[in-house]
């Protein structure tokens, strides 16, 4: 691809199934808007890709406030999947994303397996979409609200519905709120996923002791930020050993050092999330930092370090 020289003689290209990335750094869904919002601070063309804010078939207003609260080295959110819906996404948001000069990955979500399939079908063949990322952490309304991503069968059913509807690579974003994430990873791999991304947020809670009320109107919310990085890294390492498809690491990545840990643990690419909120330039700084590290280490390609964590045989 075009930007090899820009990367200072180091080859940063990676491949997620059929999705070719100029470097392994993506921005995580829900932390980079629809690509336009942070352009005062970061040049989208330098990114490996943008994962757009999750969309559903119909627009969603989101949860009542308070929706966010800071916790130690992290934050809880219960945004409630607020989004403009697929039609306005295609008409209003995609045209800008399409001309950013980077890969566009559209994150999708739904209430039923059929809804995921219909949504993917609506996006099939739409110009400027390079891959879909499927959020399976949503509650399954037909199965008592149990999240699709916590049951291997429903995780697989969603994956199959999306896979059948589109030709572009399908990345399934895994929930960490399960007893064994490798079981879900294998289920979606068998169902045709081209890659998995992990982790989504960890379910958490905070209480204001003076008012004795939960800090979030939704009572519980998703924990993100540096606080969750060790958990995410462990899960990426476990999943990378359990599946043959590429793994995208997510969870508290704020520096190049964080990203390198995920690559060594077996991630082919990473997503920067919460860091975009407090350091909008984080993703570009991480790309520069990975390049500098590889140069110092004398590694000509980032692909040489993927999965290369040295674990002593017991």
């Amino acid at each position: 691809m075009e930007n090899v020289i820009d990367q200072g003689g180091v080859d940063l290209r990676v491949r997620i199934g059929g999705l070719h990335l100029q470097n392994p750094v993506l921005t995580a869904s829900g932390t980079f808007g629809y690509g336009r919002e942070l352009t005062a601070f970061v040049n989208p063309a330098r990114l490996g890709g943008i994962v757009a804010k999750g969309i559903s078939l119909a627009p969603r207003p989101g949860n009542p406030p308070p929706r966010v609260v800071e916790t130690a080295c992290g934050m809880l959110n219960a945004i409630g999947l607020e989004n403009v819906g697929v039609e306005r996404f295609i008409s209003d948001k995609l045209p800008f994303l399409r001309q950013t000069g980077t890969r566009v990955i559209v994150n999708i979500l739904g209430d039923t397996v059929e809804e995921y399939g219909r949504l993917a079908g609506r996006l099939a063949g739409v110009e400027g979409i390079d891959a879909l990322e499927v959020n399976i952490s949503c509650p399954n309304v037909k199965k008592g609200g149990v999240a699709f991503g916590t049951v291997p069968e429903t995780a697989a059913a969603v994956t199959m519905a999306v896979r059948a509807a589109v030709d572009v690579p399908v990345i399934v974003k895994l929930s960490p709120n399960v007893s064994d994430i490798t079981v879900i990873a294998r289920a979606v791999e068998a169902a045709g996923a081209d890659a998995v991304s992990l982790i989504n947020t960890l379910l958490g809670m905070a209480i204001d002791s003076r008012s004795r009320k939960p800090c979030l109107a939704n009572v519980v919310g998703g924990l993100s930020g540096p606080a969750i990085k060790p958990v995410a890294l462990r899960m990426v390492w476990q999943v990378a050993r359990a599946v043959a498809i590429p793994v995208i690491g997510i969870g508290g990545i704020a520096t190049a050092g964080d990203a390198l840990e995920f690559l060594l643990a077996g991630a082919t690419a990473v997503q920067v999330g919460t860091a975009n909120f407090y350091q909008p330039r984080a993703s570009e700084e991480i790309i520069d930092g990975i390049r500098d590290f590889l140069r110092q280490e004398g590694e000509p390609s980032v692909r040489n370090i993927i999965g290369q964590v040295r674990v002593d045989e017991q």
């Binding site: 829900g30 932390t31 980079f32 808007g33 919002e37 942070l38 804010k53 989101g62 949860n63 009542p64 406030p65 308070p66 929706r67 966010v68 609260v69 800071e70 934050m75 959110n77 945004i79 607020e82 919460t274 975009n276 909120f277 407090y278 909008p280």
Partner: peptide, 16 residues
Amino acid sequence: THMACGLGVCLGCAVA
């Protein structure tokens, strides 16, 4: 309000 980014991406600062 509570606000994580101030930049229009987190959608945390909702007001009815």
